[in-house]
Every structure is written in structure tokens, then in C-alpha cells.
Design a binder for these strands. Sequence first.
DNA 1: TGACACGCTCGAAACGTTTAGAATAGGCTG
DNA 2: CAGCCTATTCTAAACGTTTCGAGCGTGTCA
Lengths: 338, 338
Amino acid sequence: MLDVAKAASVSVATVSAVINGSAPVSPELRARIEEAIQVIGYKRNAIARSLKLGTTRTVGLMVADITNPFFTDVVAVIQDVLHRAGYAVMLCCNDEDVEMQDEQIELLIDRSVDGLIIAPAGDDETLKRILAGANLPTVLIDRLCDGIDTDAVVLDNRRAVQDATLYMLGLGHRRIGYISGSLDTSTGRERLAGYKAALEAAKLPYEDDLVRIGNFREKDAYTATMQLLTSAERPTAIFSANNLMVIGVMKAIRDIGLKCPEDVSVASFDDFPWADVFQPHLTTIAQPVQAIGEQAAQLILDRLSGKSPETPRRLVLQGRLMIRESCRPVSLTPRAIA
Amino acid sequence: MLDVAKAASVSVATVSAVINGSAPVSPELRARIEEAIQVIGYKRNAIARSLKLGTTRTVGLMVADITNPFFTDVVAVIQDVLHRAGYAVMLCCNDEDVEMQDEQIELLIDRSVDGLIIAPAGDDETLKRILAGANLPTVLIDRLCDGIDTDAVVLDNRRAVQDATLYMLGLGHRRIGYISGSLDTSTGRERLAGYKAALEAAKLPYEDDLVRIGNFREKDAYTATMQLLTSAERPTAIFSANNLMVIGVMKAIRDIGLKCPEDVSVASFDDFPWADVFQPHLTTIAQPVQAIGEQAAQLILDRLSGKSPETPRRLVLQGRLMIRESCRPVSLTPRAIA
DNA sequence: TGACACGCTCGAAACGTTTAGAATAGGCTG
DNA sequence: CAGCCTATTCTAAACGTTTCGAGCGTGTCA
């Protein structure tokens, strides 16, 4: 900028004025300066600008697992909206691990991001402390945290799983296995609550040994399903609390020599683009990823531009049960009792 | 930092010295300063530091499509390695669009990233100009660009597709449809070249109307496949040049009332975690995503620490043909000729 | 005892912006 | 013609670091 100023024989203040349009400049000088900028190929230094202004026009985005198509879909739309608004996004993932999460958040805050969009791995004290200390505009996505009172956009997880479970119950299934996500997350807890609620509505007892923790990962879900299927009284249906885990569930079913839906019915949280083209066509709960991303981005943008209300806004969206062919009436499940 | 200095009644220079260990400080002062840091809860401002040092410890990572599992897998490992080395990652995607790409790269350079890892959407002049102007350590992944002479890690695309095509040829297929990616990318061109090479090796003519451009996206692949399957002499097998497109291919096959592999054999670039659990079990070319990510990260890390050789390094990895059940001998394809 | 080296600490400049407020020039008014 | 206002431009401080070189005790050696 100094070079430009020299080349145009003006002060840096004037150069700054034409670049930012922050003060009136005579057409004559403006032209001279603009030409100098061209000639020199000047680009303003965003770091110096950030230092002075105390803003980076960057928002930190942390998801639980960047490998999970649900999150990547959401990330894609958040990015899109934010870029359009002139913000860069710095992406992290916590790998479903609270320690990693704390590290990553620190890293983001360290880089002076202007705001944070987070799908937390869990709500440990450290996270709360860090967030409170940073005092940044924050929006939670997908998962809520007790004690972190910010804007958020989440799904009505309980309702969605309840509906799905009710559907399976309606097909006559009485022993429905449930592969849960980590109960350290609100999604883990809420989804399980939905399962319980459905059982209760059907006046069926909740049986501990029908639910296994799969931690939202394929591998854990695989072993969890193995246990379920080799237990004394094997379930006739299994619900998986997310997309990654249902792969593990299906692998376990295959490895144990059973077939879906002939021997076990399966349904899962999260939809797949290929769900109705590869067999068995999975029955799933589809999340409105587009809306989730858009709303989250809008929430943070509003917060950043200071036009949000003081009190946090909580958006709760609804899932959609996509009934396909991976569940069938229990009467058509010949080997139902092994 | 000034506050800390005051609290410990020392100069900022000394505080800086203990924080960075950049100069000897007496144990006594060190203790006092460290205590002051604790008390005040001081965290050094990375922006100011960047301004002074001219480095941000951030690398820009641009992939073609953040929604593509291949890229997200690679991104995940790059992130992991880079974070471990103390670098943050700023992630963008160009949506397979060169204009978007130029914009995003500008955005990254604007943020003063220290280096760039790029899977380019194409090699337009603007990109070359921007990159040349920025003069940053850069590594290309997945795709090469004519005229951009940097470190790179790519797959031996030609060889991989040639092998896959040869395999289909070996099953007796003579009319193999090919759904290509964009020919503006090196992967698009190289994969097609592999297909041609296999035909040539089998002394079969290359037929223009057996290949259709799908631009690496499901939707385009769908219409491309529709055209292929409704043409006068429909192919008995189809190869898809990536993972997203094969979904489109399968949907087209389904919508047209055919079955894979009974009526059409299918193989595809890029593997899926669920490929051997959902039917038909797809025959694919698996890429060594872990290795790609690790090498790319290492390449940029070496470059950033100045311990790379002057001449660019090109790493070429090999794909692996995962033979499953989506291709069968043409003799078992009853409706081969419609 | 004087010279010198060493170990520690500090002052101040620099990184590249933004911006408040001062300065300047020119025109208008009374 | 003095005084004042307006429009434009400039000077300089500030943002929070890092680092160079200077300064200053102390101890060592001749």
C-alpha cells in the first residue's frame, strides 16, 4: 500500500480511502490511485487488516466426522452460503472425541475466527469453559449441549425415531434391536428416547439387552450387531441410529449368514443417495440437510452482523421416514425365532 | 501481552522471550511471567504474530467436490496429518467449476495461507496466473494441470481403467459403454485413455457413441446412461469414471427396467465401504486414499519447511481392481442384444 | 584495577493496515 | 478583506506481536 501511495504520490490514508470507499476522494486522485494499484498489482493484506479491525471474516466449522455424508452435505451448503457472504470457513472435525474437540476449537479460536458452527462430540466442561472464555458468536448444529446456551439448529430426533420404531412395531416386530450412538451426544440420547417412547406407546417393555452402543461408527456397530444377533433370543428387526452404523449392521447380518429383510428387518437414521437403487432398499429417516445448512449459516450470519435477538434461537426441523424395502412384516420372517 | 508485562513488571520483549523460548530468561523472571500469564489468562494473538512473521501456519485445501466420499476421505487424512504438525486447514470446494475455483483460490490466498493443496476443476489460464502470482508452495492432488509444475500425488489412472476394461473385455463384452468425467481434468482424460488403450490392446475399434460425458456428477451420468441404454445397439457393460456417477448409472439402469448384472454389467472408479454388502456388489477400482492424503500432506509439509528438492516431486500411486459381482460373462447376459 | 566477556533485560522499530483529527486550499459571505 | 465553511488530503497513532541492538550488572582474567 505504501508503494501504491508513493507511485501515485499520495498518502496511504488516501489509498485506503479509495480502496474502502470510506472517505471522499477527488476523481482525479482516485483515478491515479486506481491506476497505480493496477500497475503494481497491489492486493491488500488481510492479516494486517484483521489485526487493525479485529475481524477475520472467517468462521470456524467443526463437525463430528467429516467422513459422514450427512455432515459433508451440511458442510457443503454452509460453505456455499458463507462464501457468498464473503466469509471463509475453516473446517475441522473432532472425530467423535471430546479431547480432539477441545484441541480443534482452541485451534480455531487461536486463528481468531469471527464465529463458530459446531456439531459437538460431547459436552465436557472444558468445551464450556473455552467457549465461555472466547465469547464468540456460536451456533450448534445437529447436537445440543447442556449448559451451552447458543443459537442452534437440530432435528426433532425423538419424534423421528419414534415414528420409525412405531412403523416397525406396526409390522408386528416385538423384539427390535437398537444400535445407539454415543449417549454423550444429544442425538444419541434423543434418538434412544424416541425408541423408548415408541415401545411405551405400544405398551412393550424396554429391554436393556436389545440396545447396544455403536458410537456412531461402523466398526462399533458391527460388533454391537454381532452381539445382538448371536444372543439367545435374537431381534427380528434392528434400528441403527445413523448412516455409518447401518453399514456395520448390514455387514454383521451378512457375516452371520442372515439376510435382510428376509431374516431381519433394518431401518436407519440418515438417508443415502443410493438407498433406492442398491438392495436391499433401506428404509431410512431422511434429514433436511439443505435446510439445516442454510439455517445454520443464516443464524451465524445474523449473529455476526449483530442483527440477532439477544436470546438464542433454537430451530427444530423434522425428519422424514422413507419407507422402502428393508423392513417386512414379522409374519414373513421365517427364521424369526432361531 | 502488554498487560502481562505490566503485571510482572517486565518488558514485552521479555514476555515474548519466555513465551517463545527465543532468548534466555532468568528462572526468577520466567516464573513471575508465567504466573502473570496464568492469572491474566493471556493467549497470544495469532493475527499479530502472523503479521510480524509473515506466516499463518494455515494451509488452503481445495477439492473438487466436498460431497464426494473419495475427497472427504483424503481430506480427513490430510487434516489429521497437518493438524498434528500444528497447521490449520482452510477447506474449499470448487464444485467442479473453474470460475468458482478461481474465486476460492483467491479467497485462500487472500487469507495468507502458507501453502495450497489443490484438486483442480480444470486448468484455465486464470488459475495459472493466480498461482504464479502468489508463488506459494503448492501440491496438486488427484489431478494434474498442464503448465502447473508443482509437487503432486496422483493415481495411475490410465493403468487402472485399462485393467478394469480389460477385465470386462475378458468376460466377453464387446460393447462397453463409458461414462466419462470432464475432459478438462487430467483424471477425465487419463481414465478415458485407459479405456481406449484396453480396446486397442483387444484390437477393438473405439466407438464414439459408446462414450458419454458425465462430468463426474450423478445427474449428468444419469442422462448419459439413459442415452447409452436407449441407443440402437445398447452396450452390454458400462464403466463409470467415478463413484458419484455410478449412482446415476444404476438409477438409469433401474428406471429403464433393466437389471445389473443380469442385463448390463457395471464397474466403476472409486470404491465404497458398502460395496460388498449391498446388491449388486459393485466391481470397482479402489484408490489408496490413506496414502494419497498422507503423501500430499507430507509433500506440503516438506515444502513449507524448505526441505524439498528444488524440482517438483510427482508421486504416482496404483489403484486396485476390486472384482465383485456387478460384471458377468456376456454369455450370461440374455438380453444382451435388445 | 581496568578491560572484557557474558548473561540478562529492555527500548524501539517494524509488519501493513485503518481512522481520528489536523491541515490545507479554495470559495463564499458579510 | 477577514472570517468561516467545505471538501479534500495528510499525519500519526494504533492494532499485538517479534527481534535487533543497546545497556547494564557481574564475574574473570591479565
